[in-house]
């Protein structure tokens, strides 16, 4: 499967970021495995340490398996002064995990993010590609419950 994805792109180094994006997005656990790194390394003919370096540099990539829904809560100043810390506490409690962890049922991973560019609706989080703004503790409950119900 990794080979197929690689094959969509010309084997040049500048496509590395694209390949990593696609591999991660299509993996059910939203991460990039050692095996994937090896396949990319063979395809682009660049050492796996370079790939690992890139992979760990950018905040959107993960080397650990993650949940179905990746929650990225913004902790930058505009969200912080609107109470993102309370939202974080709420999320930790509701999911019973720490930042960087995944719930046992594999449904949620909790992460922190730098500014998401939706500051007009601070505090803000993204769950996968969807933006949730003007968060309150009640709203967090609703969102989590809704996703849990819909699986």
């Amino acid at each position: 499967m990794y080979k197929e994805i690689c094959g969509k792109y010309a084997p040049t180094k500048d496509n590395l970021i694209y390949i990593l994006h696609e591999i991660q997005d299509t993996h059910p656990q939203h991460y990039i495995s050692e095996e994937a790194v090896q396949v990319i390394s063979d395809y682009l003919k660049i050492p796996s340490n370079h790939i690992y370096g890139v992979l760990t540099f950018y905040s959107m990539y993960s080397t650990k398996p993650r949940g179905k829904n990746i929650i990225r809560l913004c902790e930058s100043p505009p969200c912080y002064i609107k109470g993102s810390d309370n939202i974080l506490r709420k999320l930790k409690n509701a999911l019973n995990i720490k930042v960087g962890e995944t719930t046992q049922d594999g449904l949620f991973t909790l992460e922190l993010a730098a500014c998401l560019g939706v500051c007009g609706n601070a505090p803000v989080m993204m769950i996968n590609d969807d933006v949730y703004g003007d968060l309150t503790e009640e709203k967090v409950d609703e969102i989590i419950t809704k996703i849990r119900g819909g699986k």
């Binding site: 930058s76 100043p77 505009p78 730098a114 500014c115 560019g117 939706v118 500051c119 007009g120």
Partner: peptide, 8 residues
């Protein structure tokens, strides 16, 4: 690559 907090 707009990333300055508060800028959109």
């Amino acid at each position: 690559d707009e990333g300055e907090p508060g800028t959109f």
